[in-house]
């Protein structure tokens, strides 16, 4: 799959949304392209942005000769019960809940923390101890 570099259906759109949400401000196509993993073609990113805008998920405003895309405003108007915290409270509080939420990461034990910290430090010094 040229352009989308092996991404599953809908994956690129989700990544674009994630990128814009992380930035917290409107971004141009080039900025979004730079904020995504892998070497995606400019047109691929532009297509995804246009599609999301057509669905009403994104708003856009002119920025120079291009457009800057931002998340549609209704994200701010989400009721309090629909925060991540609110959902957890609704669906996970109490010992006999069915626990229908699947969390990416659960709470860590001391051992987990040691392993995970070590893993991230590895990256900071990838050449450490390796043969030349």
């Amino acid at each position: 799959m040229p352009g989308s570099s092996g991404r599953a259906r809908g994956a690129l759109e989700q990544e674009v949304l994630g990128c814009l949400a992380a930035a917290g401000r409107p971004l141009t196509t080039a900025e979004v392209q730079a904020g995504l993993d892998g070497h995606l073609a400019y047109t691929t990113v532009m297509t995804a942005l246009t599609r999301l805008h057509a669905k009403g998920v994104l708003t856009r405003q002119p920025a120079g000769r291009a457009f800057a895309y931002g998340l549609a405003a209704d994200m701010d108007e989400i009721p309090a019960s629909l925060t991540a915290r609110g959902m957890r409270r609704l669906l996970e509080s109490g010992p006999d809940r069915a626990s229908v939420l699947a969390s990416f990461v659960a709470d860590l034990s001391a051992e987990d923390e040691r392993i995970l910290s070590g893993l991230l430090e590895d990256r900071a010094h990838p050449q450490d101890g390796g043969p030349a």
Binding site: V57, M75, R88, L101, A102, F104
Partner: peptide, 18 residues
């Protein structure tokens, strides 16, 4: 829209809502 819901919340959290 795309199966992804982004919530404005500073606490890092991610889960699947069935």
């Amino acid at each position: 829209a795309d199966g992804l819901v982004v919530l404005r919340d500073d606490a890092p959290d991610a889960f699947v809502l069935p």
